[in-house]
């Protein structure tokens, strides 16, 4: 059973230079207790996808399509109804904990705020719950730490606090946006382990550009390029049998895979290439690729790719 179904989602931002097509077009499903990794490079639209699910984009944004969650189309809900879902049903763990935490509020109070709002607990009980949450993300002496400010926490601990905040209301879906960005390797692995633990029996959309981290956590991986998905497969299949030339290029450019770069640059989202969006950088591009936009096709069960090489 799918928990979240996104159909024909388009998200466009009007700017001075033209329409930025951050997402054009995405169809995606997340099943109950599925952990889905969303992989892509800077500016491909992955954060925007997360933001559109919990509707945190600015009002001028043009959004089309449907996002179904437990029988409701999130895009059609009123702001009041959405507020009941945001944080409680669907939680987002934002990237960059240093700027996402309020520097003038105690960490414990920040976590308690959401608990008070969504669970109707009084201040005291909410605080106790906050300490409990800090303990669940393995922060030592949580009682004392809850009374400290974000600047007294190290980077890894702040990330833990962010996770505690996201989990405080026991959401069914967690959207984690680059939770390991900027962390040292050893700490990164601890956060990965923690996320794996806390996301058990929950659904998670794990947004990252770090494939290594995604493999440790996710069941399936969706690869995004220039505002659309180009490949979707089980995590192991993405590694063993990457089909899309972009996925292959992405893997080959990793330092431990030989550091072979993909030529060229990601296209501007204002002026997308005609046909296949990857064709200017693709070694297999044919005349057809420059004109026609390839559809997403399921090659084998659970493995889809957007490329004419396979159709």
């Amino acid at each position: 059973m799918s928990l979240l179904t996104i159909t024909h989602l388009k998200v466009h931002f009007p700017t001075q230079d033209g329409m930025v097509k951050a997402i054009d077009t995405i169809d995606l499903e997340i099943a109950n207790s599925e952990r889905l990794g969303l992989i892509g490079e800077t500016g491909c639209g992955k954060t925007v996808l997360g933001m559109s699910i919990i509707r945190l984009l600015q009002p001028s944004t043009k959004i089309e399509g449907e996002i179904w969650y437990k029988g409701k189309d999130l895009l059609k809900l009123s702001e009041g109804e959405m507020r009941k879902i945001r944080g409680k049903e669907i939680a987002m763990i934002l990237q960059n904990p240093t700027t996402s935490l309020n520097p003038v509020l105690k960490v414990g109070d920040q976590i308690a705020e959401a608990i008070q709002l969504h669970q109707g607990l009084d201040k005291r009980a909410a605080r106790e719950k906050a300490v409990e949450m800090l303990e669940s993300v393995k922060i030592p002496s949580p009682d004392k730490r809850a009374n400290e400010y974000p600047h007294e926490f190290s980077g890894g601990m702040k990330e833990r606090a962010m996770i505690a905040m996201g989990l405080a209301c026991n959401p069914s879906l967690i959207i984690a946006d680059e939770p390991t960005k900027g962390l040292d390797v050893t700490i990164k692995m601890q956060i990965v382990k923690l996320l794996k633990e806390v996301s058990r029996r929950k659904s998670m959309l794990f947004i990252t550009h770090d494939l290594g981290v995604a493999t440790q956590i996710c069941d399936n991986i969706a690869v995004m390029y220039a505002g659309e998905l180009v490949e979707y497969a089980k995590t192991e299949d993405v590694f063993k049998n990457p089909l899309h030339p972009y996925t292959q290029g992405f893997l080959n450019s990793l330092p431990n895979m030989g550091l072979k770069p993909i030529r060229g640059m990601s296209p501007s989202l204002i002026d997308l290439p005609s046909g296949c969006r990857f064709h200017p950088r693709c070694d297999h591009a044919s005349a057809k690729c420059t004109i026609e936009h390839p559809p997403m096709v399921e090659i084998e069960k659970g493995h889809s790719v957007r490329c004419f090489l396979y159709t």
């Binding site: 390797v185 550009h209 290029g249 450019s253 550091l259 770069p261 993909i262």
Partner: peptide
């Protein structure tokens, strides 16, 4: 990004050979 990182690192290696450079390369990425 990784794909751009690969471009820059390869370029640096190439320049190092071409200009006969000595390098101290600082990174957290082993």
């Amino acid at each position: 990004d990784v794909s751009v990182q690969a471009q820059i690192l390869n370029l640096m290696n190439h320049l190092k050979r071409e200009f006969d450079l000595t390098l101290l390369f600082i990174s957290h990425d082993l």
